[in-house]
Simulated scan of single mutants.
Amino acid sequence: MELPLVVGVDGSESSLRAVDWAADEAALRGLPLRLVFASLWEQYESAAGGGRSSEQMLADAVVEAAAERAHRREVDVKISTEVVPEEPVPVLLREGRTAFALVLGSRGRGGIAELLLGSVGLAVAARADCPVIVLRGGHDNQASSTMRGRVVLGVGKEPEHSAAVRFAFEEAAERRVPLEAVRAWRCPGYETTDHPLMAGEPARLHEEQAVQALDAALRDAPEGVDLHRRTAEGPAHKVLLDASAGADLLVVGARRRHGHFGLQIGRVAHAVLHHSSCPVAVVPQRA
């Protein structure tokens, strides 16, 4: 059974871009597409009694319009829809247990500032069991079908065979574009040429460690992908935000620790989710 690509829809322009992007991705990977609308309208209108509520009719209309839009964009993709009378976050997290990935807009209908990720997207990206793709970049209701030419992978403290590395290679291979793997490094200010281990070249050790980390993460790189390795001095979030300009997708990892509750997402992933110039894929890695 093929796992579906699940999109959270709510009728906003941002979620329509997510539908477009997910339809293209589903066609690229040969996956079914599932469109889900979650809302608590039933809780607020059940006391009124009677037939279908206006909110339920709106939800049905939203998912129907989203399905038609996806079908027009990718006619061969199998599409299913569901409207669920629950809070969006638990619904999407539950959907993520049996999904290839979750795709979300960067903000919903709640008036969140345009540059920042909404609370639903952040909560899902920080807790989901599957990759979460957030449609950063662009501020209209169209997802560009033109591939810009590269996937960017942010290499942090990933173990070998990490899920984020595998996901990035798959995306680059499916899109037939180069993969740029980036590892940021910094030389702490207290490490000067007077430091006994850093005499003469205070930055060289840190740069070499970054190169070694990059090599370790990419040790099992598959054949057929045009791989570019790059180290860059600076804060990791800034390096990756700069790299996101002109990219098709930015891929970062997120550690999930067994028994830990709340948001499990690092500062770097948090920053790029809010400010990336391109879509961001947060790929969970079980510790």
Results as ranks from 00 to 15, higher is better:
residue 29 R to A: 07
residue 29 R to W: 12
residue 55 E to P: 00
residue 44 Y to V: 12
residue 45 E to S: 11
residue 38 A to R: 06
residue 42 E to N: 05
residue 31 L to W: 14
residue 57 M to H: 04
residue 53 S to T: 15
residue 38 A to K: 10
residue 22 A to T: 09
residue 54 S to L: 10
residue 41 W to A: 03
residue 49 G to D: 03
residue 24 D to C: 04
residue 49 G to V: 07
residue 22 A to H: 11
residue 32 P to T: 11
residue 42 E to V: 06
residue 57 M to F: 03
residue 21 W to I: 03
residue 33 L to P: 02
residue 32 P to F: 14
residue 49 G to A: 07
residue 52 R to M: 09
residue 46 S to L: 08
residue 36 V to A: 01
residue 47 A to K: 07
residue 48 A to I: 09
residue 33 L to V: 13
residue 42 E to T: 08
residue 27 A to Q: 08
residue 39 S to T: 14
residue 36 V to L: 05
residue 44 Y to R: 04
residue 50 G to A: 04
residue 26 A to F: 13
residue 38 A to S: 08
residue 50 G to W: 11
residue 35 L to A: 06
residue 52 R to A: 14
residue 53 S to G: 08
residue 46 S to Y: 13
residue 45 E to G: 00
residue 51 G to I: 05
residue 48 A to T: 09
residue 30 G to K: 13
residue 25 E to Q: 15
residue 57 M to R: 14
residue 51 G to C: 03
residue 46 S to H: 10
residue 35 L to M: 02
residue 49 G to I: 06
residue 53 S to A: 05
residue 33 L to R: 09
residue 23 A to G: 14
residue 30 G to H: 09
residue 44 Y to F: 13
residue 24 D to R: 15
residue 34 R to Q: 13
residue 47 A to F: 13
residue 35 L to T: 10
residue 54 S to D: 10
residue 44 Y to Q: 03
residue 52 R to W: 04
residue 26 A to S: 13
